[in-house]
Computed example of a mutant assay.
Amino acid sequence: MYIYLCVRDGVGNIYRRRAKVFTLAMIIYIDYKALQKREKFMKKPKSDALWKKAHERNAKRVFNLMVELEGLWVKLGQYLSSRADVLPSAFISILKQLQDSLPPRPFEEFCHTIEKELGKSRKELFLDFDENPLATASIAQVHRATLIDGQKAVVKVQHEDIKNSCGRI
């Protein structure tokens, strides 16, 4: 059996998200510009090490923001992680983490979505429910469960703040 739930509301505050992206872009720009200015007074080996650290630092910043903003941002990070021809290796290695897995959402959020969409609590719908996700992706999370009638199921629930208009069970 395949169960798929989607939430139809909750994109979040678009202006807050844009401000976060813009703020991070400015932080990264200033970081690289400052390094560029300091580089003029350094020897090559020291300069190379500082650039490598700057790339790692900024890649972590981008990664953290993409995980926070989720959805399309994670998809963008996954794409960028495949562009070794465009980005420094530090970005590639850090953004590749978006390919494998994302941090799981809180189980309470998952249960809230089920109750909101189906009008019943998790305990009314399932005999057993594994709190540890099988997988967490950019738009949904998957858990093993046993339905009330004893049938084994995999339950995939879209994250609360991902906008979509689907809804099949």
Rank of each mutant, 00 (worst) to 15 (best):
Y2N: 11
C6L: 12
R8D: 13
R8E: 14
D9T: 15
G10H: 13
N13Y: 11
N13P: 02
I14Q: 15
Y15N: 11
R16K: 15
R17Y: 09
R17E: 12
A19V: 07
F22H: 05
T23K: 12
A25L: 13
A25P: 06
A25F: 14
M26Q: 13
M26F: 11
I27H: 12
D31E: 10
D31T: 08
D31F: 04
Y32Q: 07
Y32V: 05
Y32D: 04
A34N: 13
L35G: 03
Q36R: 12
K37Q: 12
E39Y: 00
K40E: 10
M42T: 05
K43Y: 07
K43C: 06
K44E: 15
P45L: 03
A49P: 04
A49E: 13
K52R: 14
K52M: 12
A54C: 10
H55M: 10
H55E: 12
E56S: 14
N58W: 00
A59D: 02
A59C: 01
R61K: 13
N64I: 01
N64D: 14
L69E: 05
L69N: 05
L69K: 05
E70M: 04
E70S: 10
E70G: 08
G71C: 04
L72M: 15
K75C: 02
K75D: 09
L76A: 11
L76K: 01
G77F: 02
G77D: 01
G77S: 06
G77R: 05
Y79C: 09
S82T: 15
S82L: 11
D85M: 02
D85A: 05
V86C: 08
V86I: 15
V86N: 08
A90R: 10
A90T: 04
F91R: 06
I92C: 02
L95A: 01
Q97P: 00
Q99M: 09
D100F: 11
D100K: 11
L102P: 00
R105P: 05
P106C: 08
F107W: 07
E108P: 00
E109D: 12
F110N: 03
H112Y: 09
I114V: 13
E115H: 06
E117I: 13
E117G: 04
L118W: 08
G119F: 06
G119M: 06
K120H: 09
K120Q: 10
S121V: 05
K123L: 12
L125W: 08
F126D: 02
F126V: 03
L127A: 09
D128Q: 12
D128P: 03
N132R: 09
P133A: 06
L134S: 05
A135M: 03
T136M: 07
A137D: 00
S138Q: 07
S138F: 02
I139Q: 02
I139L: 13
A140E: 02
Q141H: 02
V142A: 01
R144E: 07
A145L: 11
A145P: 07
A145C: 12
T146P: 01
T146S: 07
D149E: 04
D149A: 05
G150C: 08
G150Y: 08
G150H: 10
K152R: 14
A153G: 04
A153E: 09
V154T: 03
V155A: 03
V155E: 02
Q158V: 03
Q158C: 06
H159T: 03
E160I: 02
D161K: 11
D161E: 13
S165K: 14
C166F: 15
C166D: 10
G167Q: 15
G167E: 15
R168L: 13
I169Y: 12
